[in-house]
């Protein structure tokens, strides 16, 4: 279970996230929704300590993974990012590496050199990302020869290869067509059997059909969180109602 408590994030003394407390249950898909600039991506990035790399960023409050504080002084951010993987809005495979090398780049970076193990891990990760059948005969090809949807699944395979406990997805389908989007969502459902998925999306339909729980953020604050079915049929807060019905935002 991933949990944040009173999480506050500011950039150059400007508060972007103002004390958000949320629980992301294990092996569930949680969606984070809200208008542009509400802090969705900022929240997501806090979960694998990406703000460590941003000058002027200050993170206070607590983020725990299975009870363990990830911002603890003894925690290595690189190791945290292996346990909590991330997929971005725009597919970003390494363009100078082959499909195969992209899939196992995380493992290579963490020092794995055994070729047999790497081959096995690449196949497993590409299979888990529902891409193996489409690329098994062209593993040495450049990833830029793949379609956008395939590139995104390659990025998911890259994240899965290091066996994360949580997968963060920042608008992973916003650049994809409906068929590629459906494949990613199908993949999310399969991944839910073994890991926790958190997705930031602008697409209300996607949040409604592809998540178990939904959290609505507005102006850096959590307005409402709960089971997706409840949020999209009978939200408790009028602000949530107004946002998801398109009356503001």
């Amino acid at each position: 279970m991933l949990e944040c408590k009173d999480l506050q994030i500011e950039f150059d003394h400007k508060a972007v996230l103002k004390g958000v407390s949320l629980v992301f249950p294990e092996r569930r898909i949680s969606a984070i929704i809200g208008p542009s600039g509400c802090g969705k991506s900022t929240l997501l990035r806090a979960f694998n300590r990406m703000h460590d790399l941003t000058r002027g960023a200050k993170v206070t409050g607590s983020v725990t993974l299975n009870g363990q504080e990830i911002y603890g002084a003894s925690q290595d951010a690189v190791l945290i990012r292996r346990r909590i993987g991330m997929v971005f809005q725009k597919p970003n495979p390494f363009p100078t590496l082959s499909i195969f090398d992209n899939a196992i780049s995380g493992l290579r970076l963490s020092g794995v050199r055994n070729q047999a193990h790497l081959r096995e891990a690449a196949e497993q990760a590409l299979t888990d990302a529902a891409l193996w059948d489409e690329v098994k005969d062209r593993l040495k090809s450049n990833p830029t020869t793949l379609s956008g949807g395939q590139q995104q699944r390659l990025c998911i395979a890259r994240a899965l290869a290091v066996n994360p406990e949580v997968l963060l997805m920042d608008e992973p389908c916003s650049a994809l067509d409906p068929i590629a989007t459906a494949k990613i969502e199908e993949l999310m459902f399969r991944l839910r059997e073994r890991l926790t998925v958190i997705i930031v999306t602008h697409n209300m339909q996607q949040a409604a059909r592809a998540s178990d729980r939904t959290a609505f953020l507005w102006m850096g604050e959590l307005v409402e969180a709960g089971e997706t079915e409840m949020i999209f049929t009978s939200p408790k807060k009028s602000m949530t109602e107004d946002y998801i019905t398109g009356r503001f935002g």
């Binding site: 209300m204 409604a208 999209f232 049929t233 939200p235 019905t245």
Partner: peptide, 9 residues
């Protein structure tokens, strides 16, 4: 329109 919440209801 893929409605939600009170519109859907």
């Amino acid at each position: 329109r893929a409605p939600f919440a009170s519109d859907l209801r």
